[in-house]
Structure formats: structure tokens, C-alpha cells
Design a protein around this nucleic acid. Structure first.
Lengths: 384, 384
DNA sequence: AGGATCGATGTAATCGATTACACGCTTGAG
DNA sequence: CTCAAGCGTGTAATCGATTACATCGATCCT
């Protein structure tokens, strides 16, 4: 791969011309002070209280004054200042969603269903990208502590600060996907990583694989740790000896898949299948294997985890664990909404673990033990 | 592909137990009213004004009172209420970034560099996902009109409302990537789509292709339209007759690539190369071609546009147009920061068009005219 | 008819911070 | 010794909306 670069064009200039033509009319209305409720009140010949009521409590004002106020609002182009309103209401009707990285397509569906639920209940949503960077986390902590949001959805699996948890007394926090160490009494909506990983591993065993490697997620990541456990559960359940050399430290990115491939080629006794803890890792791994002349699934089988969109258009289409992302988002949103409702008593902080489904596609083939009695038995067990 | 589903587990119950143990201590401090500047003032034995000054204008208070105030702040755990502060300051030091869809990995790099620049200048960033849905757009319009943000970065190429532009007199707006129809005097940071598309098309011609199809972006999308123009420019420049049957309506998603493949197979006189207006479309197209038994680039060449991460780990690695995403984000951020600075005169609303680079990888092979004199000439021209 | 009631509206307090202005004390110059 | 300047601090206005309470008529009941 090389970069074939040629500057096609650089900076346009048309703006300068436009700017000059725009300066000629001597500033129609000057940087006009934004229109407030007082302007509307004056114009409609009522008090500000009446204007406020006409907007928020129709029924408390005559139909006649109301229409007069609405006309004044339309004429002036008034929009209530949300900051003032929030100050008075001590609430912003806004939820902050903290993610470890916004650009990842894994969030796509979750974000959408999340937003649907929250906006249905009248909440706005803003997203924050922490990149697991303490400075960034501190920035968002300030956003929360300073009362800018009414609730917090935490996807990151980490808190900016050990004391952050005390916020739970200020605003509700709901964890999504990731446990946060040391916070057992925050509600969590996640998946059953261990069971899902075990199921995929059993599927691989059922296809006749006996030497199965696991490309893990990031070190210290709670979900990744659960997936490792599930992988081990399944191996142990099938009576397959554990081989530490088949556990490859990875991450949730394609580069970690490439590193996994290096491990693969370095082994004398290579695995016949690799179960990756993320689709991104799996795809990076497949690419690296193919680059070295192997084919998937003929030479090696590879399975992933997550079910991102790209895994379906890869060649081969990736066999993977499909996370119920839409439901995850919906439940997380509903949970938070309930806890933000100050009128009702808060529901108990339950931990919800959703089931995943296997998405069998084309990246896993039969292993050396396929067709044997043991394989069939394992297969049947996996499909129960 | 079929779904091999088995409910591994459903809902955990540990929460109920936790809840019960948690209820026993009789609510240590009741839902304590958040601590305000008055609490700090009282504790430090000074006025609220002094507290405020101790925080914001050190130097205006004695070192001794200052430390006393800081001690009181630490003791009470005080964090200034940002809503009140914003109300008074008539500014929130926050920027809203509106995207047509957050989950797309194309935004990854842009978002990061954007955030870096803005936070360097003391601005927070919040993201909004419009999905090109008028209702959602209206929601964010309210956010802007109600003074919740100081500036707006618009990636969506559309305005919620024709009058939205008047906001330009309220808060600065900077367009990124996409022109908005009818808004010639908003500054824009984008790329030179036409030149880049022409360059890629010339590269295909240079590799000996003569029948080149173009899988377009979404109908009506300004950048996609420019890319079509560039494609046509290059064909015309090489004296290749235009064939309307080779322009396939697409989108920025893999599904549109599949539809493109259907067009491909429906043609009697098939193209030898396809230039897609997006990587996502290109990948979807390749997958569909391979599913029908063709190989890329041996049977057909495919080129993309954007340079998303996945294009590099695909098999074959995609030859594509690399957008300078990091620079795009940085310039957009800097432009907006300058315009939000009320002390300096606003810079003229220029339109900046950055150059892209070709990323030559493995998805384009030689066409039937390769090696011929004309091909060489075209090739040389493309590489100038 | 007189007083209670109710409905529509205005007045003013309030949310929590910032900041213009006033005040009092210290200090230095004349 | 007096007055101005300067510094540190407090008082109160302010940002823009919401809302408790007061007010004023009109209506209704006995």
C-alpha cells in the first residue's frame, strides 16, 4: 500500500468576496439582544407571568389573551431561554451518555434506540466521548456535578473518580454493558457475556474443533474478562485441556487481530479455530491470516463477538455472537427514565443480563473432530 | 445465514437483594439539597461575592481569605451550578455538533480532532444525531435557539428550517463537508469532491479501464453530486463517451452496493471497473460481486471514497480516496472558535476545500486497455 | 343584597451564580 | 495632619424564566 498523493486544490476564496458584499448594508438590526419574555409581554400588553402561563399552562389564561400572546411570540420570534428555565426548574430534561469512543459503529443501533426511548419521554440526549482519557472524563464529571444533566448512562466501565459514585445521590446513573468495579449498587443493563462466549465456544467444539484459541478483549475490561470465563467454561465442559498459549491478549480493534495472527504463526501446534472477543478483532485477524496465504474457514475458522454491520459484508461473512443492541438501548433508556422520575419511588437497582444469539455465517468450518461421536455430542449440547 | 438462537439467560435478580440491604440504613443524609455558593460563603464567613471572586478572579482577594474559601469549598464539596453561571454569562462555552448518524465510523477521526481543538479553547462539545429526521432536527433547533450552545457545527447538509439560518446572527454556524442549499454565506470546511473524484477516475482510466461505472451517493446529497461531476470530468477529459447506464444510484451504505451489483449483473456490456462514492457502498458491492462468484480485482475493479478504517482490512484492501479527516475536524473547530470569540472581529466566511489523496491498495487491477499508448498517457496525466 | 367563590391576571420572590457599585480601612503624598 | 488612592469586601442588581401569592371583577348562593 502506498499513498498516491496529488494536491487537487487547496483553499477557496469565494468567501472573501461574499464577505465584502455582505458588509455594505450597514448591519440591518445590530447584533440584536435576543428577544426575551419581557419583549413578548410588552408587545401583547400583558405581564410576563401571563406569557409564561400561555405557553406552559394553557387553560389558566383566556383563549383570547392566549392567542394574543401567541401572536406576539410569532411576531417577535421568541424562544424561551432554556438556561433560565432550567435554573428555575432545577432540571434540564437532558441525559448524558458517556461512551469510550463515538466513532465506533458498534454503538449505532444502541444509540438510536436509546434516543428514541428518551425523546419519547421528553428527554434530550447528548453524547460524550471519553476515550478513556481521565481529563476528558473530568470534563464530563463537571458537566454532571454542575447540574447540566438529569441523568447519566455510562458505557465506559470506568468512573472519572472514585467519588463520582456519590453522584448517585444527586442524579441517577445507569450502567450499560460494563460493570464498574466497586459499584455494586448501580443498576446495570448488559448482556450475559459468559454464557454467550460459552455458547459460541461450544458451537466451535460441536463443529469438531479441539484446539481453539481465544483472542481476548482489552486487558482489565470487565466484559472481556467474562468472555474469557465463558470460553474456559465451555472447554472444561467438553473435557478439553486448557492451554494458556491459546489465550491471546487483544483489544476491540482490528490491530489486535493482526497481533493475534502473529501469535498464530508463531505457534508450532496451531489452533484450528479462533474465537475473538470482538468482531473488529476477528476481522483484523482474518485479514492478517489471508494476507499470509491462509483461507478462512478452509484453513482456520474464526468467530467473532458483537454482530456489527461490517461483520456481515466481510468475505467470509463472520460467524459471531449477536448482541441485542436495540433492546440494550431501550432497556437502558427506560431504566434511567424511571429513576429520573422523582414522583415515583425509584425501582430497585437490578442487574439485567440479556441473552445473545449466535449468528452462524461463513467463517467457521468443520474441525478435525467433525463427525466423530464426541463432536456430535458436543454439537447436540450446543444446540439444546 | 441463519440465526442459531438459544436463550442463554434472561434477567438477573441480584439487584432485588441489594436493594433490600440498601434500604436498612435510614437514608444517611436525605436527598440533600445540592450545596450552593451560599453554603460555602456561610461556612467561610464571607459573602457569596467573595467566594465567586476566590474562584474566578484570584488576586482580587487576600491569599488568606482565598485559602479559607477554598477550604470551605473542599469541605462542602461545592461545584458551581453551571446553569446559573451560564444564565448570568449569557454563554455556555459549549458547542453542538450535528451529525446525520453518530454510529458511522467515518466520523471517528473527525470527532476526535474536533474535540481536541475545541477543548483546547475551553469549549465543551456535545453531539447530536439527527438521522435526517425533521423531528429530531427540530429538537436540536430548540437547543440552539434557547441558548444552550454557543456555536454549531453542521455536518448534515440540511437545515431544520429555512429560517434556521437566521441563527447565524445569534450564534456562529460552520458547515463541515456539506454545503447547505441556499446558504452561500455560511463558512464551510470541506473537501474538493469534484477534483478528488476526477482524480480517482483518471487513475482507473490510467490502469486501462474504459467502461467505468459510478455508484453514486444518496440522491440530492451535495457532496455526492460533486463526485458525479468529477467522474464525468475525467471521462470527458479522456474522450470516453458517457453512458448513462453506468451511473448507478446509491447511498452511503453497504446495501446500496448490493443494489449496484444487481445493476452490474443486469448489464449486457458490463463495466470493468466501478468507482463508488463511498467506502461503505464499495464494500457492499464487492461482497455482492464475490457472492456471485466474481473476484476483485481480477474480474472487476472497485474503488471507493472516504478512507474509513474498515476499507483497509477488507479483502481485498480497498483502493479509495482518503479524506483528510483529522485536518477537516481541526479546521472546522478552529474556524468556529474564531467566530465565537466576540472580542475579535469575525473572519470572513470563507469556503475551504481541502485536497484528498488517493490510497492505492488492492481492489483495482489493470483494465483491457492497460499498456496501450492511450492508457499510459492517461496514467501519466493522473500522476502529474 | 352581601358575602363567598372562582377565574384571570399582575406583583414579586425565586433559582444560583456573577459583578457593578458602595463602603471602610490602610497607606502614601503633600 | 488631611485627603486621595488603592485594596478587600459586602450589598444588591442582574441574567430570563417560573410560580406562590395577592388582587380584582364577575358570578353565585342564600
Amino acid at each position: 500500500m502506498f499513498i498516491h498523493g496529488r494536491p487537487t486544490a487547496t483553499v477557496g476564496l469565494s468567501g472573501r468576496h461574499l464577505q465584502m458584499t455582505r458588509r455594505i448594508p450597514p448591519a440591518p438590526p445590530p447584533p440584536s439582544r435576543p428577544v426575551t419574555i419581557h419583549d413578548v409581554a410588552r408587545r401583547a400588553g400583558v405581564s410576563t407571568a401571563t406569557v409564561s402561563r400561555a405557553i406552559g399552562n394553557p387553560g389558566q389564561v383566556t383563549e383570547e389573551t392566549r392567542s394574543r400572546v401567541l401572536a406576539a411570540i410569532r411576531a417577535t420570534g421568541f424562544t424561551p431561554n432554556a438556561t433560565a428555565r432550567n435554573l428555575r426548574a432545577r432540571s434540564t430534561k437532558t441525559v448524558l451518555v458517556l461512551l469510550p469512543g463515538l466513532g465506533n459503529s458498534f454503538w449505532n443501533v444502541i444509540i438510536n434506540s436509546l434516543e428514541d426511548v428518551l425523546s419519547e419521554h421528553g428527554y434530550g440526549v447528548i453524547f460524550g466521548d471519553t476515550r478513556n482519557d481521565p481529563e476528558r472524563e473530568a470534563h464530563y464529571e463537571r458537566l454532571v456535578r454542575s447540574g447540566q444533566v438529569d441523568g447519566l448512562l455510562l458505557f465506559t466501565g470506568r468512573l472519572p473518580h472514585p467519588d463520582f459514585i456519590q453522584l448517585d445521590r444527586t442524579i441517577p446513573i445507569t450502567l450499560v454493558s460494563n460493570e464498574v468495579p466497586g459499584c455494586p449498587d448501580l443498576p446495570l443493563i448488559g448482556i450475559d457475556n459468559r454464557a454467550a462466549a460459552a455458547e459460541m465456544t461450544r458451537y466451535l467444539i460441536g463443529r469438531g474443533h479441539r484446539r481453539i484459541a481465544h483472542l481476548t478483549g482489552p486487558h482489565g475490561h470487565p466484559e472481556a474478562a467474562e468472555r474469557i470465563k465463558g470460553y474456559r467454561d465451555a472447554l472444561a465442559g467438553a473435557g478439553i485441556a486448557h492451554d494458556e498459549a491459546l489465550i491471546w491478549p487483544g483489544g476491540f480493534d482490528p490491530a489486535s487481530g493482526r497481533r493475534g495472527a502473529e501469535r498464530f504463526f508463531a505457534l508450532a501446534d496451531r489452533p484450528t479455530a479462533v474465537f475473538a472477543a470482538s468482531d473488529e478483532g476477528a476481522l483484523g485477524l482474518i485479514k492478517a491470516l489471508k494476507d499470509r496465504g491462509l483461507s478462512v474457514p478452509e484453513d482456520v475458522s474464526v468467530a467473532g463477538f458483537d454482530g456489527i454491520e461490517y461483520s456481515g459484508i466481510y468475505d467470509p461473512a463472520l460467524t459471531t455472537v449477536l448482541q441485542p443492541r436495540s433492546e440494550l438501548g431501550r432497556l437502558a433508556g427506560e431504566n434511567l427514565v424511571k429513576r429520573m422520575d422523582r414522583s415515583a419511588p425509584p425501582p430497585p437497582p437490578a442487574r439485567t443480563h440479556l441473552a445473545c444469539t449466535l449468528l452462524i455465517r461463513d467463517s467457521v468450518g468443520d474441525g478435525p473432530a467433525a463427525g466423530r461421536k464426541g463432536a456430535l455430542r458436543a454439537n447436540r449440547r450446543a444446540a439444546t
